[in-house]
Design a protein around this nucleic acid. Sequence first.
DNA 1: AAGTGGTCTAGACCACGCT
DNA 2: GCGTGGTCTAGACCACTTT
Lengths: 262, 262
Amino acid sequence: MAPLPSGTLGTLDPTSDRAVFRQIADQIRDAIAKGRFTEGAKLPSEAELVEHYGVSRMTVRNALGVVQGEGLVRAEHGKGVFVRPRPPVRRLASDRFARRHREAGRSAFTVEAEAAGSRPEVDSLEIREERPSPDVSARLDGARRVLARRRRYLLDGRPVEFATSYLPLDIAQGTPITEPNPGPGGIYARLEESGHTLDHFDEEIRARMPSPHEIKALELAPGVPVIHLIRTAFDTAARPVEVCDTVMAADAYVLAYQLPAH
Amino acid sequence: MAPLPSGTLGTLDPTSDRAVFRQIADQIRDAIAKGRFTEGAKLPSEAELVEHYGVSRMTVRNALGVVQGEGLVRAEHGKGVFVRPRPPVRRLASDRFARRHREAGRSAFTVEAEAAGSRPEVDSLEIREERPSPDVSARLDGARRVLARRRRYLLDGRPVEFATSYLPLDIAQGTPITEPNPGPGGIYARLEESGHTLDHFDEEIRARMPSPHEIKALELAPGVPVIHLIRTAFDTAARPVEVCDTVMAADAYVLAYQLPAH
DNA sequence: AAGTGGTCTAGACCACGCT
DNA sequence: GCGTGGTCTAGACCACTTT
């Protein structure tokens, strides 16, 4: 086996208190940060690292597990370990729900993604009546029956977000909101047509590691957190008319907000 | 060694395609979700799990590594593996920079934390002049010299956030902003006194896994992401007068915003 | 001293991807 | 077929915590 190109990775310090697998992880992290391995580049194989450092394979795998958990590299079975490319980022602007952005027949997601040069897709996963969870019910002034609209958003074939909208049944019933395609301007346009002129939205943002289900649905790599956003829409009568629960792949999003200073 | 209390953990399915360590991780996750292990409770020791499942210790450790990486449990050397308690959460409201909240002599962080029944502390880490990074410079209209104020915030002794404010040197120089304690109402009050009445703030939010340095500074447990917030303050002349770069322990924060619907 | 997790070794067999 | 990573075993020694 050929030795590694000199200089890409260093040697171990046997006098250090730091565990060997952490030293190796440090060196891999450092080499990526310094650009000695570029985006998409293949790291030395486990066997090469075993030879280079003179340690057992489990120690090398332990080190790779660390940098993989940090989201720096991705292992591909049978191929190798590769430096993770940074995916394209979707920016959510603070005026994204402004009325002027409701274009005829096309969702905000579609318009914005195409403007950014991406190929958007939306899966309508499910539309049905439900009893809301206590949290959703509380946000909807104690509603006991809601319409739930579940959907998933993809950019260039990659799932980036899934969302569930909950609407009080008395508001949604008998409107196009119960249809998979609610028509031009989306459900917010339909809410305003049925007399619920929108006043403002409250958004709550959390970040955490994904559940196994979320990892699967968003095809998340190890080391990628999710952003959990809960939005409540209020009409001009201060009634909450929709709760939207959204889980986003954190590496695909930047959220932008504007706050008044008054 | 006594057998485990029956029913807390199940048995392996040898016909399953799912790897043994993943099956074990699934059962531990499930047991926590179902409340069979409550917050702070000690999981069975590695040796007990080895006996219960009839697998090697490395397989058990692999499984524990999975749930540890998800932030569900924390290992304490010499003591055991424990279900992680949920830390108290700090809620950042959308009106947190309103002028009326600038209390005499006390920072917004201090006021709010005490109201929530926590014990707040602020470390002033460093105040100095710097050449800004290209990103900070761009946000400050190309400023070439800035004052950097670095500080760290703790709640009940736990570090939850560290932040660096950058201000154009021509604005900060000769004001109390260069002092560790800038006085009542903080640097925003001082900016307004020196003629830069604040108009609005832009905030950008990202979430990602922490760097080793961030893990250390925030004493983060495995499986806890960080929220990275970059705020730019604008005065009424539309000049950017401050950039604040903040890294928060994601398990300690909920961010709240209000968006207009107009 | 006994029990716990932390690290490491030296193997083994398997599944996947490429040539 | 061969090289890759994925899983698993059966040990070993160490450091930390409690008794």
